[in-house]
């Protein structure tokens, strides 16, 4: 691992100032992704600003919004009574990810910014990876692309966003609060992540000197929700496909409103408003869910080894919506 400097500020303003002061600096959260990528030689910061002791560890309700500090640990968020009571799909998604040890370490902000698990990205012995080395090509498009995207990819990159928590946050309509030298701003999570286009190395809207300080989750008024994760083993594995679904049923079992987002299939949490609209005022039946699923994967572009994801995604949408409808 390359040598790097280290600092541990205890105040947000100082953390941002240090990121700007030290060349090639990065923030360090739980380190579960960054330290790993540094060992691999994918990330090579010259300085780490350890933000784990910043006072951004609150989880509180303000009106109809749960505000979660960026330095809360994944396990704390998943176990928090407010989260369990008001948006259990978030707990479900977090608990479906990684392992208890990793969830004890991983922070909310770091989780949002975890990088793709594309094998070619992760291993610098592959020369071609536009995300790691802009302009070098993409080894995955003609390579072993079983875990890659079927939606939202480009000729430059077909990597998926690998996380679980952000999929639930997308369906919940959450926003990200960031603080930088120019002050604070709030971005909706759906607009925070970018599609790769010709610049797959730019993954989101965050500037290097901006710090995620919290996320804001509007508490949903729904009758049921579910996070379904499909993977190669039952636990401690990334999603092949996942679905976060929220359903609000009227007493006569018609759908008042439904929202869902897909993980594992695209470079960002994949949410399709037309698919959600297709559910409004319809009965909560498998046929109706299937219609929405078809709309959600419209335009899917499978590659040599990941064609199975198209049908899997549709079935996962149907199952997640069905389970969410039965809950509550």
């Amino acid at each position: 691992m390359r040598r790097f400097g280290y600092s541990r500020p205890d105040d947000v303003g100082e953390a941002i100032a240090q990121e700007r002061r030290f060349p090639e600096a990065k923030f360090l959260g739980g380190g579960t992704n960054l330290v790993d990528l540094m060992k691999m030689g994918v990330e090579k910061p010259a300085h780490l600003v350890d933000i784990t002791r910043l006072p951004l560890t609150q989880i509180e309700e303000r009106g109809n919004v749960i505000r979660i500090g960026a330095l809360t640990r994944n396990s704390e968020v998943a176990a928090h009574p407010l989260v369990l009571a008001k948006c259990p799909v978030l707990s479900e998604a977090i608990l479906a990810g990684a392992s208890p040890q990793i969830r004890n370490m991983a922070t909310t902000g770091g989780n949002l910014l975890q990088r793709t698990r594309c094998f070619y990205f992760y291993d610098p012995s592959y020369a071609e990876c536009n995300k790691r080395v802009p302009g070098s090509g993409c080894a995955a498009i003609q390579g072993y692309n079983r875990i890659h995207a079927i939606l939202g990819g480009s000729d430059h990159c077909i990597a998926t966003y690998p996380g679980d928590m952000a999929i639930a946050l997308s369906a919940l309509g959450a926003s990200i609060v960031v603080q930088g030298p120019r002050g604070e701003r709030t971005i909706s999570l759906d607009r925070f992540y970018r599609l790769p286009g010709a610049t797959p190395h730019i993954e989101n809207d965050l500037k290097p000197d901006e710090l995620i300080t919290s996320i804001e989750v509007p508490t949903p008024t729904v009758t049921g929700s579910h996070y379904l994760k499909v993977r190669d083993r039952n636990s401690y594995a990334f999603a092949l496909v996942s679905v976060a679904a929220l359903v609000d049923l009227a007493p006569d079992k018609h759908i008042r409103q439904a929202r869902f987002a897909l993980g594992g299939v695209a470079p960002k949490p994949w949410r399709v408003p037309e698919a959600e609209e297709a559910l409004v005022n319809r009965p909560a039946t498998e046929a109706v869910f299937r219609e929405a699923a078809e709309i959600a994967v419209r335009g899917a572009k499978p590659h040599r080894y990941n064609g199975f994801k198209v049908e899997l995604a549709k079935r996962a949408v149907v199952r997640a919506l069905t389970t969410a409808s039965q809950r509550g």
Partner: peptide, 8 residues
């Protein structure tokens, strides 16, 4: 419980 290999 944490992983000491990913902890600086």
């Amino acid at each position: 419980r944490v992983l000491s290999c990913l902890t600086l």
